[in-house]
Amino acid sequence: MPVDIDIAKVARLARLALNDEELAGYRQQCEVILEHAALVQTLPTEGVTPTSHPLPRTNAFREDVITECLDREEVLAQAPERDGDYFLVPRILDEP
């Protein structure tokens, strides 16, 4: 099954700033792989429950107790940019 990917849109969704040449290359490679992966569509699966997990476990809960937090300095030391006790980022254009 031929696959046609809007690669620029996908790259935007994935926050990857790729130039046109890169986009064209990835598009071609992804289409080849997806055509192979589309083999899954030839297998009849009507009424088959999808498996998102190999482990048949439920209710893995934690007690509602407070545990130790990280040291703020150790955490902020890894930040590419900080301002005092905060992480600093360039301006945000949109509300979420």
Binding site: R12, R15, L16, A17, V75, Q78, A79, P80, E81, F87, V89, P90, R91, I92, L93
Partner: peptide
């Protein structure tokens, strides 16, 4: 690029991330 690891500059946060 917000909390750890590499950051490349960008005019806004979306560009920085991308």
């Amino acid at each position: 690029g917000v909390r750890y690891g590499l950051r490349r500059l960008g005019e806004n946060v979306e560009e920085m991330m991308s």
